[in-house]
Design a protein around this nucleic acid. Structure first.
Length: 429
RNA sequence: GCCGGCGUAGCUUAGUCUGGUGGAGCACCCGGCUGUUAACCGGGCGGUCACCGGUUCAAAUCCGGUCGCCGGCGCCA
């Protein structure tokens, strides 16, 4: 008989044989009977080991094996309302594969301790459900891009182009030259649209910002797309369609994970196009009316984003930010003061999850803005070439995958949206 | 960079204000129990009170410094 997943064993009927393997999740013993709850990647199931029903050695091992020991179990299914899930296995064989030492993570846990023991905490139900949700998100994202004729591409993470609007970069020695860890794949994606037209990529991005908030990771997964022949308005349409597609599929197909994490599927089912669009200048007025001390030219902080999305069930777009507050590659609007950009702000205070824009095609304008940022123009020559050889209107956007997941999974801190978070003071384990 | 908080057993903590032999729960070990639900009952093991210095007859406790961590702001996705 083959091993089966706990999910499948739980579907079996009274009296059927079962054979599972996994890790001890909980254990209680009572003299001549041991209750062992086994965990595998699909769920948990209680196993009953009775002294009179198994080999002497098997009972002894079941009795002494500590939590997180790895085990193989054979037995018979019994329906019993006292068991979690309503079914349990009465063991005929109980084989310990790896005896666990005393597991450090117990009933009481602090944030710091769990981060120190992240490699073990990943086994928790909570982290497991979050990682499953993340995998599902990626699956639906791929589906959507595939159905909308985007090509997935694999740009480099090592780059010589340092600047993206003043955000701090990690630098390192590249055989005698200074190279950087990428903060965005955007410029490489722009190069690829001249053959593939619509491209997207998923890469790690690195920000050496000394940010210490629940919305920042030093290393995060950056989902970026770039589209030829697309202007800002259509760019927003693509974003809201993609985000809605992911939300609705998560709501329909990941109920178990959502329920465990406390996110109602209905919250995500309502996410559908179109999303509300607010121009920056109107957003400023709204914020002033709400009592914020903010004026034209100021960038939004977390409290501003939260206030703007207050009462919204769906994300909103804030468009047309002042030229000075955005990156050199964003196309300047006809008014000359703002750029053709849009930030997507998630509801419930989760903040900005997407930044996107139509791209500038005027080389002189870009050079002027780059110089203001103190960038070395010669590293951008290749990028200007893209405007010299058959330039087309084009747009793109970048989504912080962990921020998106934070909102979807209703997480309190972005560190839980990734298995090994890189934080300001922590890169171990 | 700025503001705030916390470091006591493997873990979670009481004790710090008001100085006088550091208590408990969990985990683990031993014993008991044939239906437990993060079981229960009895016993046991476990502490350089983050580190350095100062005050004092006496410091976990008061003072100064160092280190580590957490929360928030700013910046950003």
């Amino acid at each position: 008989m083959e091993f089966e997943k706990i999910r499948d064993a739980l579907k079996k009927k009274e009296g059927e044989p079962a054979k599972i393997r996994g890790w001890i999740y909980r254990k209680r013993s009572s003299g001549k009977i041991v209750f062992v709850v086994i965990r595998d990647s699909t769920g948990i199931m209680q196993v009953i080991v009775e002294k009179s029903k198994v080999a002497k050695e098997d009972f002894k091992n079941a009795d002494k094996a500590l939590i997180e020991s790895s085990v193989e179990v054979e037995g018979v299914i019994h329906e019993d309302e006292r068991a979690p899930g309503g079914k349990e296995i009465h063991a005929t064989k109980f084989n310990v594969i790896g005896f666990a030492k005393e597991f450090p993570i117990t009933e009481y846990q602090s944030v710091e301790f769990l981060l120190d023991n992240r490699h073990l905490w990943l086994r928790s139900r909570r982290m497991t459900e979050v990682m499953k949700l993340k995998a599902s998100m990626l699956k639906f994202i791929r589906e959507w891009f595939d159905e909308n004729e985007f090509w997935e591409v694999t740009p480099s993470v090592i780059t010589m182009n340092a600047a993206e609007g003043g955000a701090t970069v990690f630098s390192f020695d590249y055989f005698g030259q200074t190279a950087y860890l990428s903060q965005t794949a955007q410029m490489y994606l722009e190069a690829l649209i001249f053959s593939l037209e619509r491209v997207w990529s998923l890469t790690p991005s690195f920000r050496a910002e000394k940010s210490r908030t629940r919305r920042h990771l030093i290393e995060y997964w950056h989902l970026e797309a770039e589209e030829a022949w697309v202007r800002n308005e259509e760019n927003m349409k693509l974003q809201e369609e993609m985000v809605s597609y992911v939300c609705q599929n998560i709501a329909k197909r990941c109920k178990e994970q959502l329920e465990y994490l406390g996110r109602k599927p209905e919250d995500l089912m309502v996410v559908e196009p179109p999303f509300k669009r607010i121009k920056y200048k109107d957003a400023i007025k709204i914020l002033q009316d709400k009592g914020f001390d903010i004026q034209w030219g100021d960038d939004f902080g977390a409290p501003h984003e939260k206030a703007l999305a207050e009462g919204e069930e769906k994300p909103i777009f804030v468009t047309n930010f002042p030229v000075e507050s955005k990156a050199f590659y964003m196309k300047i609007s006809p008014d000359g003061k703002t750029v053709e950009c849009a930030d997507m702000i998630a509801p419930e205070g989760y903040g900005e999850i997407i930044g996107g824009s139509e791209r500038e095609d005027d080389i002189d304008s870009m050079i002027e803005r780059l110089k203001k940022d103190g960038a070395d123009i010669k590293n951008y020559e290749w990028y200007f070439d893209l405007r010299r050889y058959g330039s087309v209107p084009h747009s793109g956007f970048g989504l912080g995958l962990e921020r998106f997941l934070c909102w979807i999974a209703k997480l309190e801190h972005i560190r839980d949206a990734t298995p090994f978070p890189r934080l300001l003071r922590r890169a171990y384990p």
